[in-house]
Design a protein around this nucleic acid. Structure first.
Lengths: 150, 150
DNA sequence: GGTAATCCTGTACCCGGGTACAGGATGCAA
DNA sequence: TTGCATCCTGTACCCGGGTACAGGATTACC
């Protein structure tokens, strides 16, 4: 344990939350963490709850929320009930729809890849010329799925 | 049609393939397109097949290949049969596995979000403290899915 | 009080897939 | 030949989520 009466220094928080010290600073810049109190010399001194907050951030990220969204979630936790569409519930429901759309896109991609492998396509430029190839060469830009990176 | 005897200028290729002229230059830099012949004044003059190549590139991107991978695919089309693992087939199979892994990750995320909504979680920091919450706060860093952005 | 470990700030860089802009040079038609 | 559209190169910037490094200042331990 630390000797500073329950306060944790940057490195201790970082290690406890399995995050680098630079990432901590980065989260401050992004507004995900409030600036904690400082020592006389200017070193940050965190309350132990910060470790929990960091675990929450990482959990939310794993659920597909961006850091901006996470900042909103953490903030939303504070002052309760700013109206509907403001709680975690509402945001989770919205994110769920997003994730499901993404899954659907990837399933379309999967089907197409399967068809290409099945059809024995082995040269895209040749395929593009032959009308029997299942690959979507002339897709309208607005239609298709967004590949692996959304 | 153009008056330059079948050759297309940058803007014409770009429009025909529904790509910006900057993107064309970018693809040259990335090695996706060979540098075409030039006019006396240094303007690029493309053969009409280039439009097909661009459609191929876009199709491959929609299938989840990165530009580096697409460069490999286009090159692989040229000199046939450099060995196994070198054709489109092999690469498509590998990509298929990648896409399926990604779908599995997203389905895990989907389940977790559903559970959170179901359980009525409405404040992450509170949830992190209560043992009845289904959210994965203490996940080993090596385990979980990679959110929406891989 | 010496010395090592940690911390501070600021700035720059990484990935992928482009987009935007400045400042000149060409191409083409009237 | 003049005027405007198009093209050229080079450089910088965007997103998201960080990482890396330089050059000082502070803290912890002996």
């Amino acid at each position: 344990m630390t000797r500073t009466g329950g306060w944790l220094r940057t490195g201790e928080v970082a290690e406890a939350a399995d995050v680098s010290a630079q990432t901590l600073r980065y989260y401050h810049r992004r507004g995900l963490l409030r600036e904690p109190r400082r020592s006389n010399g200017g070193h940050r001194l965190y309350p132990p709850e910060t470790v929990t907050v960091l675990r929450v951030i990482k959990a939310a990220q794993r659920l597909g929320f961006t850091l901006d969204e996470v900042a909103g979630l953490v903030e939303a936790g504070g002052h309760r009930h700013g109206g509907p569409d403001r709680g975690l519930r509402a945001r989770a429901v919205a994110k769920l729809a997003e994730v499901e759309q993404r899954i659907a896109d990837l399933q379309t991609i999967r089907e197409t890849l399967l068809q290409a492998v099945d059809a024995g396509c082995d040269d895209l430029v040749v395929c593009a010329g032959s009308p029997c190839c299942p690959l979507p060469f002339a897709e309208p830009a607005t239609a298709g799925p967004r590949a692996l990176r959304p």
